[in-house]
């Protein structure tokens, strides 16, 4: 190859790369401007002590992070978020999977169910919070329970279950987790159903011919085929549940002692409640790291599973 040829080849390649890159350029530009810049600004501020207004930002090095490491409330809020996530992972996803399995069969009103199960995710969190707050309300008017749950519990004779749902530390967080799951299971349902529908029907037939019962078929055919979808659902559930906060604000306001605090509500209260901006940014950075670590471990796990 002559030198001139090589040069023109290199030039061609460069041009080619540039054209290819121009496809991602709009996305990269929007992203850099609206995400990367705020991200670095927050990263920088996490090393400062600042009240959000004052012209003085005092550099404090790692002090915010050191304090955060010893902040019991912060770690408790992490634990609360993990609890919500755990309920979402088990209860919500099990429900979603069961519903998806049921709707994957040839049954009547299949389309109706599909439409209905996706209605809760469509509603805004403000609407969901307001309605559920009413359902879980405790208190009386004219000798009647105002909250619908208490009212119906009372009506069907389960008086001992009538309860102060949202201001009792034993139930407040669970109630929030259940409402969150209620709002979210539609996503899992639709994704899992979609996954189930991609499974080749012939595989089921083959299993039947081999004499496998429905339970065996489920374990040996359905589950292995569904692993990638299940992993995606799990990752999205974890990310969604760890970051829940609008629902909490609209259900319990500033929270029940520290029993309903999650990382995002802590960040918000550090920002506008106690005016510690730098500290709030340090919280944001730490929380982001934790989430990335969780997602990475799922990524590794899914690679392992794929190999098997």
């Amino acid at each position: 190859m002559s030198e001139a040829n090589e040069k023109s080849f290199k030039f061609f390649q460069l041009k080619n790369n540039l054209i290819n890159f121009s496809f991602v350029l709009p996305a990269v530009i929007i992203f850099s401007v609206f995400y990367i810049y705020p991200f670095f600004e927050i990263f920088r501020l996490s090393f400062y002590s600042w009240n959000g207004i004052s012209p003085i930002e005092r550099f404090v090095g790692w002090q915010n992070f050191i304090e955060l490491a010893h902040d019991d409330v912060w770690w408790k809020s992490m634990g609360n978020a993990a609890y919500i996530t755990l309920i979402a992972l088990t209860f919500q996803n099990a429900l979603a999977f069961a519903l998806a399995l049921a709707c994957d069969r040839e049954i009547r009103m299949k389309r109706f169910y599909r439409v209905v199960f996706f209605i809760p995710p469509v509603l805004s969190e403000i609407v969901v919070g307001l309605i559920w707050q009413w359902i879980l309300y405790s208190g009386f008017q004219d000798g009647q329970h105002i909250g619908l749950l208490n009212y119906y519990l009372d009506r069907i004779g389960l008086h001992h279950l009538v309860h102060n749902w949202l201001s009792n530390p034993d139930t407040a967080l669970t109630c929030i987790a259940v409402v969150h799951s209620w709002k979210g299971f539609g996503w899992g349902f639709i994704m899992l159903l979609a996954g189930l529908q991609t499974i080749d029907r012939q595989l089921y037939e083959a299993a039947k011919v081999d004499g496998a019962g429905s339970w065996r078929t489920f374990w040996n055919v359905t589950i292995p085929m569904m692993v990638p979808v299940i992993l995606v659902v799990i990752v999205l559930t974890v990310l969604g549940s760890m970051q829940v906060f609008v629902l909490i604000l609209s259900m319990v306001g500033q929270g029940l002692v520290y029993h309903t605090e999650v990382p995002v509500t802590r960040i918000l209260s550090a920002m506008t409640g106690t005016n510690r901006f730098g500290y709030a940014c340090a919280m944001g950075v730490t929380f982001g790291m934790v989430l990335i670590m969780i997602s990475l471990s799922f990524k590794l796990l899914s690679n392992k599973v794929k190999q098997v």
């Binding site: 790369n17 990269v28 918000l268 990335i292």
Partner: peptide
């Protein structure tokens, strides 16, 4: 489908952004 240098870097940048919430970003934004 297309090849260009830094492809994976940019792709994982987008993926990572999905995970990091920026609740405090309202001031810089």
């Amino acid at each position: 489908r297309l090849q260009f240098p830094g492809k994976n870097f940019f792709f994982y940048m987008f993926v990572a952004a999905m995970m990091i919430p920026l609740p405090g970003s309202f001031v810089p934004l």
